[in-house]
């Protein structure tokens, strides 16, 4: 039972963090760069692990952020210098980084306890078995404080949330109109890479739970659903988190019922909620048209 609570709590934090940064990716039309970073951070994790031989959270985050920012910067440079289309440049850089990451994993397979399917799909069901301790458990003086993944994403969630609260107005202006923001003296490039940092941290902390592919679903789908209905940025952030939490609960129930992958079920639920939202909007607008015809 406690295991279920840890799994749901971790999934809820993953989904909420992804939804929050996803909102800004959607508004800035950068969903693809979110996709790219979520894959290329794998290389960051693997390199950080090979170099330091440690899985401590700050090291994993550091490796991911460096590679994440490098992905954003190289994609942009390839677009500008190589004169390739920007989406093609992004596709070239992140697949390259991801592929190098996969090769390194197979080369150092004996040393890294990351296996390729776990990287791609994640395994949230195993999260409760990898816990953190305070003190020394063997002597009885320490105690178990819960899964490592939970604390990782918990810290990242707090960073994401406080960043958005503090710099809400800046992020809003930049998302709305970058050149207007620039004309107001806002450093748009700094804030672009700041957002990429948040995306990198979120994806790396979510990696273990949901894997590289499904993290994209959580970045893009709840924020897109919220985009369809929200009337202000604040409302969009709340709604994206709401959609993501609903997706976690429905997905967990679905996985329990079908006895299948939890993370895949969460992603499917997020998609279903999006389609329900679109259908509901269609019905509403049709009803409005009918009403206006009747009243005419």
């Amino acid at each position: 039972m406690t295991n279920d609570i840890w799994i749901i709590a971790t999934a809820a934090l993953v989904a909420a963090s992804c939804a929050l940064v996803g909102v800004f990716l959607i508004l800035r039309r950068q969903a693809l760069i979110g996709d790219a970073i979520s894959h290329s951070v794998l290389l960051g994790i693997v390199l950080a692990y090979i170099i330091t031989d440690s899985r401590a959270l700050p090291i994993m985050l550091g490796g991911a952020v460096i590679i994440g920012l490098l992905t954003a910067w190289l994609s942009d440079s390839l677009h500008r210098v190589g004169k390739l289309q920007s989406d093609a440049s992004i596709g070239i850089i992140f697949t390259l980084f991801f592929a190098i990451g996969i090769i390194l994993i197979s080369l150092y397979a004996g040393q890294i306890d990351l296996d390729q399917s776990c990287v791609l799909y994640g395994e949230i069901a195993f999260i409760p078995f990898d816990t953190l301790y305070i003190g020394n458990l063997d002597t009885g003086s320490g105690f178990d404080i819960g899964p490592r993944a939970f604390w990782g994403i918990g810290i990242v969630f707090m960073i994401v949330l406080s960043s958005i609260i503090i710099s809400f107005n800046r992020l809003k202006t930049i998302a709305f109109h970058p050149s207007l923001a620039l004309s107001l003296g806002i450093n748009v490039i700094f804030w672009h890479y700041f957002l990429m940092t948040l995306v990198s941290m979120t994806t790396v902390a979510s990696f273990e739970a949901v894997g590289a592919i499904l993290v994209v679903a959580l970045l893009v789908i709840p924020a897109s659903s919220a985009y369809l209905v929200a009337r202000s940025l604040k409302a969009m952030l709340w709604m994206a988190v709401g959609y993501s939490q609903l997706a976690v609960l429905i997905g967990y129930a679905l996985a329990f019922w079908l006895d299948s992958s939890i993370s895949a079920s969460i992603a499917v639920s997020a998609g279903l909620l999006l389609f329900v939202t679109i259908a509901w909007q269609k019905v509403q607008s049709k009803r409005k048209v009918l009403q206006s015809i009747e009243s005419a």
């Binding site: 508004l27 809003k172 998302a175 709305f176 109109h177 050149s179 985009y227 929200a230 009337r231 202000s232 940025l233 409302a235 969009m236």
Partner: peptide, 12 residues
């Protein structure tokens, strides 16, 4: 050049 679908009202 402006994204008129952005979720924002006039006063904001």
């Amino acid at each position: 050049e402006i994204d008129w679908d952005f979720p924002i009202n006039v006063l904001d």
